[in-house]
Structures are given as structure tokens and as C-alpha cells.
Nucleic acid binder design. Structure first.
Lengths: 335, 335
DNA sequence: GAAATTTCACGAAACGTTACGCGAAGTAAT
DNA sequence: ATTACTTCGCGTAACGTTTCGTGAAATTTC
């Protein structure tokens, strides 16, 4: 019989079953215990509808089975997918996720890290943009797409290879004069390597290329100006465009439509990320797909692995190309 | 001087500052304490870089400042936006969010609820589909889009009004013969009221209408068959379509394109939800927008409000219409 | 100036769990 | 039959907080 009408504790269970506290604990944690005791305890648990208090557990074990995810938002489909996959990978390991959306705000990123450390999460996964981010070493941290100090592992797609792959694809598809459209970033991170990869690919394939990189504060409209400047006699100078993200590709294709330039007939377009409509329907454009599921799984694995093991400073995961209607594949190659 | 090299506790701070444990606690919680003590304690906290252990706090207070969100996934843009907004509303109140993606699996939904209750979260917000969901009364619960028992508040858009609004809009836009395209659901929930609202609106405006409702297991392809059956002499019988979601509208428009039927010239299309590309760019179609931010805020407010206050069983929030390129608004009405 | 009153830091108890040393019961060996 | 050994449940201590009763010091009152 319980004294209070609050939630039952192990003590109540022990009383109900007529056993000691420690015995109840053992039953709950699957430790060896006499069969008759086990049954009595299990019956008492059922009867009282007992549930362990994980905060008491956390206090004892200083382990919380919670990981914080720092990410700008969940509105951008790429971030949404990453969030989803990381959550799945954590759940698979019986971990919980604390979602922290930062809206690209460096201050918010720092605050969340402080908060996460304070809340004694077992680890933090962060896709962050704060160049001066201070990360303590009391909580394991894994960074996505950006290296932060030598002791913090960074997981990313092979952005360089992706850029190169885009250039080679455009070359394969018969392009002679291409352009790379990108929004600039003063931050040094892995996705920035797409540019170098693309240039490398263009040089290797003797592909003539232009770069158009928007500066901080420039609007998408700058692309329209750039493209308009490269139209002569109603014809675009370029026969291929590599857009740094599928989002940029989407915006650029709106501009091209306005300028009456046909995709893929007049110009072929390749994006980056592998965004799908509604998360599972069509691709926005032909694109370099990031292995989001692999990235998520790798983040979680590295984060939770035995932390005596050496953690690699940078892990690049292979990207792949996917036809999405904005390139001129011959029918048999559209996989 | 700290004995261990582990994280410092209040005891360490008390020792360092030369005060009692309770005094440190008071300083941390902003309770009145002598000025000289406060300063000594604060200095000690800084020196040791002390951070409170929220699990010990949670154990004492049986309050965790954590809310669990049950939602199918974060890939669907509507769910993604809801997740994002709920997270923001929680953060505003210094609450943390535990994201639980259920993938529409009734079993997973139930498991997460058990887990959430076990983890002693302060509340649960759930967008669920399990008709037999068992929700205990030890943890406050707010349901989105579906009524679950009388003691559980339900927050939803005014789906009925939305359906009606769609019918009226189509009538205003000059439609005479319209159709409602929907994926069926055996579950009784608020979004299902879109149909009744639409029918109501059609009757009120003397609008002839057809219903095409896919059954569980039917593929989207059924819509193609339906639409094809209603084409005579290359012309669609309908001049307006109301699709139950923007996603369906998107799929239907692909079919219409295939069937060489022009939107909005041959047929006007209205969707539901207010999905935007990349979370902030264009709308997919003309649509009835759900007030996601208001829904999120209301969920959090109702969930966390003083639970002695009576909680309303159902709160419907107003929807709005937005032009999205798939209807024939006259220029001055495109707001 | 002594007694009554207020102030406020002190420190122990409690929250619900896990870990560990102890001792009682049962088994095996001589 | 007695001793030695094993087994296993018992119950206490500890995790890091918050709360609250206690008593010493400071202040006020007559």
C-alpha cells in the first residue's frame, strides 16, 4: 500500500514485494536475482505501475543518454533530413536527442553549448558557424562540415570530390563553357571546398569556367545581373551551371525561366545536396547527393564511441551524382 | 582545492568560498543572502567554473524543463515547420525539447509516450495517429489535430473553415464544377473536416463538386485514372481542384502536366497547409495556410499553463488563403 | 546595560536511484 | 557431523541538489 498518491518509487515496490531495495534495482537492471524474488518484484512493478526515475539514475551514473544537436533550423530540407537521420541513429542506441536550433546566430550557438554542458548531456553534435566557438572538453563534441580545433572530430561529405564530380559530369554531358554560382562565406568550412573541387575538375577536363560568388549581404538578384550580362543575342554564354546548393539552383532556374533560357536544352544545371520535394518525392534538379544518413550515423558513432579510442580529426564521406531532370543524360544513363 | 578531477559540485564551491552548502544554493537561486557571502560564493563559482547539475535539481524538484514532441518525421515540410516553431516557443520559456519521430507507427507512438513519462518530462505534445493511444494522466499532454479523450486538449487549425474557404475561393474565381482530391484515412481527426467544410462551401455557393478519396493502400496513380476518366475531347470536366494537402496538389499537378492540362488556365488548383520551398521561398500552389506558429505557441502555452486552470478540449485556430500561382486571381487581388 | 526580538548562515535530511560490504542460508568436502 | 566455502538478498552509503529547523550573532527595546 502506497503512502502518498505520487508516483511510486523503488521503495514502494520493495515494500509491496516484501524484498529489499537493492533487489528491486537488480531486477530492473537485469542483474542475477532469485527466480521467486524476480517474479514477486515484477508483479509489484506491474501492480504499482512503477517507472524508474531517470533523473535519479542520471544523478547516480552521471550519464543521461541524451545528446544535443545544434543546427540552424529544421526548415531547410537539408537540415531537416540531417536532424531526422541523427535522431534515428541516436534512438537506435537508446539515446535521446535535445534539438537546439540556432538560426545561424553565433551567440545562440555558444549559449546552447553552455546550456548543453550544464545539462550534462552525454555529447553534442553541432553544425555551427561561429568562428570563435568555445567548446569545453568536458562533453564530447562532433562537428559537422567544419573543423573546430584539433581535438574535435569533423564529419563531412567529400565536398571537394563533389565539386570535381560536378565539373566532370558537365564535361561528360558535353558542356564547353560553364559557371559556378555560389553564395560567399567568410567562414572556413568543408562545403567551401566545392569550389576548389570544381575548379580542379574543370582544369582536368579543359573546361572553361567562370565563378560568380555573392558577398555577404548580396541578394540572389545579383545572379540575375550576372546571367543577364552573359547573354548575347538571347543566348547564354554558358552551356552548364554548377550551383553550390540545390536551393541556389532552384532560385537560378527561376531566373533562367524569366530570361527565357531553357533548362536543360540551353543550359544544363547541377546543384548540390540532394534535396527532394516533401522529403521523398522528386529531386529539385540534377545534383550531387550528400550521404546524409551516413553522415548522421558516423556522427553518432564517433560521438558515442569509447572515448579512449583516438578520434580522427576529419572524416569525409563519398557523395554521388543523381539525375534530376536539369541535365541532358541520354536515356540509358538516367539512373 | 578540489579533491577529485571531476566536475565541481556545490560542496566544492562551499568549501572554496568558506560558506555552507545552503548558502551556495541560495546564491545560485537568487535568494536573499548577505552581500559579502554572495560575492565570495560568486567568486568561487567563477574560479571553479562550477555548473549546476540539472539532474540533481530535477530529482529534487521533479521538474525537468523538458517537453517531448511526438511527430511522424521532420522531412515533410509541414512537420518540419511545426517542429521548428514548437522548439522556438519552448526555448522562449527556457524549456528544452526532446524530439521523438514516430514515422506514423502506432507502436512507436505508444513507446515514446511510455518513455517520455518514464523520463519524467514536464509535458508531451503529440501529433499522433494511433487510434488506441494510451495516455497516462501523470504527464500533461496536448494533442495536435486529433482529439484523444476528453481530458486531453486538442489544438488544430480550423480545418472545416479551411475547406469551406477553399470552396468559396474557387467559386469566387469563377469555377463551376470542382473536385476534391484526398487520401483517405480511417482515423477520426481534425484535418478530415476539410472535406465537410468543402462540401458545405460548395453547397452554399451552388458549386457542383466531385469527391475522389483514395483508400488506404491506393497509390497516387489512382488520381491519374480519376482525372483521365474526366477528360473529354482533351478537356477536363473540372475547372477547379481542391487538394487536401499541398503535397497532393504537387503530385496532381505533375499528373495534369502529363495529361497536357494547363494550370491555372484549364483548371485552378488550391492546396492546403501553406508549404514553402526551402521553408521560406515560394509557395507550391495557391493554398489554405495553417497558422503553424500560432498552433505551436498555443500548444506550448496550454501545455505549460498552471494545470489547475481548466483546459479547453478543442482549440481551432483560423486559417488563411494565399495565392500561389495556381489560381486565376486578377492582378490586384494577389496579396 | 540586560532582555527580547530579529536576522541569517549553518548543516542535516530528503529526493530516487545504484553499488557494495555483510551476513545468513545452503552446499560441498573431509 | 563439523568445517569450509559459496551464494545471494539485505540494507546502508553515496550521487548533487533544495529545504527547513536550529542557533548564534546582531539589533532593538525598556
Amino acid at each position: 500500500m502506497r503512502k502518498k498518491n505520487s508516483t511510486p518509487t523503488m521503495k514502494d515496490v520493495a515494500l509491496e514485494a516484501g524484498v529489499a531495495l537493492g533487489t528491486v534495482s537488480k531486477v530492473i537492471n537485469g542483474l542475477p536475482v532469485g527466480e521467486s524474488y524476480r517474479i514477486r518484484v515484477e508483479e509489484a512493478i506491474d501492480k504499482l505501475n512503477y517507472q524508474v526515475n531517470s533523473y535519479a539514475q542520471g544523478l547516480k551514473a552521471s550519464k543521461t543518454y541524451t545528446v544535443a544537436l545544434l543546427i540552424p533550423n529544421t526548415l531547410n530540407p537539408f537540415f531537416a533530413k540531417l536532424t531526422y537521420q541523427i535522431n534515428l541513429s541516436l534512438i537506435k542506441r537508446k539515446y535521446r536527442m535535445m534539438l537546439c536550433t540556432t538560426d545561424f546566430d553565433p551567440g545562440a550557438e555558444q549559449e546552447y553549448i553552455m546550456m548543453a554542458q550544464q545539462n550534462k548531456v552525454d555529447g553534442i553534435i553541432g553544425l555551427t558557424y561561429n568562428p570563435d566557438l568555445q567548446v569545453g572538453d568536458n562533453v564530447p563534441f562532433v562537428s559537422i562540415d567544419r573543423s573546430i580545433g584539433s581535438h574535435i572530430p569533423c564529419i563531412a561529405s567529400d565536398h571537394f570530390a563533389g565539386g570535381q564530380m560536378a565539373a566532370e559530369k558537365l564535361a561528360d554531358l558535353g558542356c564547353k563553357n560553364v559557371a559556378f554560382l555560389r553564395i560567399g562565406s567568410s567562414l572556413s568550412n568543408e562545403p567551401n571546398k566545392r569550389k576548389a573541387g570544381f575548379e580542379n575538375g574543370c582544369l582536368a577536363r579543359n573546361l572553361q569556367y567562370h565563378l560568380k560568388i555573392l558577398q555577404d549581404g548580396d541578394s540572389i538578384h545579383e545572379f540575375e545581373i550576372f546571367l543577364t550580362e552573359h547573354i548575347h543575342d538571347g543566348k547564354l554564354d554558358f552551356d552548364g551551371l554548377f550551383c553550390v546548393t540545390d536551393y541556389i539552383a532552384y532560385e537560378v532556374m527561376k531566373i533562367l525561366k524569366k530570361l527565357n533560357i531553357k533548362v536543360p536544352d540551353d543550359v544544363q544545371v547541377i546543384g548540390f545536396d540532394g534535396i527532394q520535394m516533401f522529403g521523398h518525392s522528386d529531386y529539385i534538379c540534377s545534383t550531387i547527393i550528400q550521404p546524409v544518413q551516413d553522415i548522421a550515423e558516423m556522427c553518432v558513432r564517433i560521438l558515442l564511441q569509447d572515448n579512449t579510442a583516438a578520434k580522427p580529426p576529419l572524416i569525409c564521406l563519398p557523395v554521388s551524382y543523381k539525375y534530376g531532370g536539369t541535365t541532358k543524360e541520354s536515356a540509358e544513363r538516367q539512373d
